[in-house]
Design a protein around this nucleic acid. Structure first.
Length: 329
DNA sequence: TCCCAGGTCCTAC
DNA sequence: GTAGGACCTGGG
C-alpha cells in the first residue's frame, strides 16, 4: 500500500537535522546512514528521505489528505533562504545555519506537541521518547500496515482524559501524570481548543496558555507554551528558552540578558529564570533575531547541544566548587 | 550514592 | 518579584 509523495526538487531539507533537533520525539533513523527516517504523524506511518515521503500505513481515513499533511507537517511554505537572510549579521548564528543546513521547523499536531513537552519536564531525550511511546502503546490505536512494523497513533485527548492515575504512572510519567490528565480533561471537554491558538497573535496565544492553564497549576509554563506555539501553531517569533539556549545566550549573547539580575552572582544573571525574566529575555531575543526568531532558536539549540556539556564555569564558581568538595572530605 | 535531564509549582521572604 | 526546594525516573 506504499504511496510516495515527492518533495519539491528545490526544497532545502535535511531529515537528520530536522528530526534530531528536539522538536519531535517519535522519529527514528533506518540504518546508520540516517538518510531515511520512520515516524508516525496524525495516525500515518511515514518514511522520509531528503526527497520523498512514503506512506506505509494509516490508522483510518482522516479529513486531511496525506499530501496536505506532508505540506503542513514539513512546513513546505517556509523559505529557508529568505529566513536566513532575515537574520542579523552574526558569526555564531551563521555557523549554526551552515552546520545544520536543511533543519526545518515542523508543524505538529498541537495536542501531541503539548503532551510531548509535558513529558519533557525535568527529563532527558531518551526518557521523553520512552514516556511518549508508552502512552502511544497503551492508549493509541495500532496502525494497519503490510510491513513488518508495529506502530501506534498518538492517543486522543479523550483517551487520556479517562485514563486512571495508575495507568499514567505505569507509562512512567511520574509527577507529570497530573498535568497530562488535567489538560486532557480540559481539551476533551472542549474548554480549551489548541487549534484556535494558530489564529491568535503570539502574545495573545501565550497569555492564554500561561494564565488560563498554568494559572490554575497545570504544568504549562512559558517554556512549554513557547514550544507549543513554535512547533505546532506557527508562531515563528516564539523563542523557547531552555537550559541549552540559556547556556548559549550566556556564552554568546550576554548583551541580550536583561538587567536586574543579582549582581552578586558571577555573571550577574540568575541561574534559573523567573517568569518575568523569561519574558524579558524572550523579548530581547525577538528584537535581535527578528520575526523568524524561532528558527534561529532551533539552529542555536542544535549547535549548542552538539558542543556538549560545557557549563560556563567562572573562576569564582571554580573556587566555590573546590571549597565545597574540600568541605565534603 | 549522587547528579543530571529541553520545567513547573509552591512557599517564604 | 525572586530564591530555594520538591518532584518520578533512568542512566552515567
Amino acid at each position: 500500500m506504499t504511496t510516495q509523495f515527492p518533495l519539491p526538487h528545490e526544497l532545502i531539507f535535511e531529515p537528520s537535522h530536522t528530526f534530531e533537533s528536539g522538536q519531535v520525539f517519535r522519529w527514528s533513523p533506518i540504518g546508520n546512514q540516517k538518510q531515511e527516517w520512520l515516524g508516525v504523524v496524525s495516525g500515518r506511518i511515514l518514511k522520509v528521505s531528503k526527497s520523498v515521503v512514503s506512506l506505509l500505513g494509516e490508522d483510518r481515513k482522516l479529513k486531511e489528505s496525506t499530501e496536505e499533511l506532508v505540506k503542513r507537517f514539513f512546513s513546505l511554505g517556509d523559505d529557508l533562504e529568505e529566513i536566513s537572510l532575515s537574520f542579523p549579521k552574526d558569526p555564531y548564528l551563521d555557523s549554526a545555519l551552515s552546520q545544520f543546513s536543511g533543519l526545518r521547523l515542523l508543524t505538529q499536531d498541537p495536542w501531541e506537541c503539548l503532551v510531548s513537552f509535558l513529558c519533557s519536564i525535568n527529563c532527558n531525550i531518551p526518557s521523553i521518547r520512552a514516556k511518549i511511546e508508552n502512552l502511544c502503546l497503551k492508549f493509541g490505536r495500532k496502525i494497519e500496515t503490510d510491513l513488518n512494523i508495529e506502530a501506534y497513533s498518538f492517543p486522543e485527548a479523550s483517551a487520556l482524559a479517562t485514563a486512571k492515575k495508575h495507568e499514567l504512572l505505569a507509562c512512567k510519567l511520574g509527577f507529570r501524570w497530573k498535568y497530562v490528565s488535567f489538560l486532557a480533561k480540559l481539551i476533551a471537554s472542549g474548554q480549551l481548543d489548541l487549534k484556535s491558538l494558530s489564529s491568535l497573535g503570539y502574545r495573545e496565544a501565550r497569555e492564554l496558555l500561561i494564565s488560563e492553564i498554568s494559572g490554575n497549576t497545570f504544568g504549562v509554563g512559558p517554556k512549554i507554551a513557547d514550544c507549543l506555539l513554535l512547533f505546532s501553531s506557527r508562531k515563528l517569533e516564539a523563542f523557547p528558552i531552555d537550559v541549552w539556549i540559556l547556556r548559549c545566550i550566556r556564552e554568546n549573547y550576554s548583551q541580550l540578558l536583561p538587567h536586574g539580575g543579582d549582581q552578586n552572582r558571577p555573571q550577574g544573571f540568575p541561574e534559573h529564570l523567573s517568569l518575568s525574566m523569561y519574558l524579558r529575555l524572550g523579548d530581547n531575543l525577538r528584537s535581535y533575531f527578528g520575526k523568524y526568531a524561532g528558527y534561529a532558536q532551533q539552529y542555536l539549540y542544535m549547535k549548542r547541544r552538539t558542543e556538549g556539556q560545557r557549563p560556563a564555569v567562572t573562576p569564582s564558581l571554580q573556587i566555590e566548587r573546590r571549597l565545597e568538595s574540600q568541605c565534603r572530605l
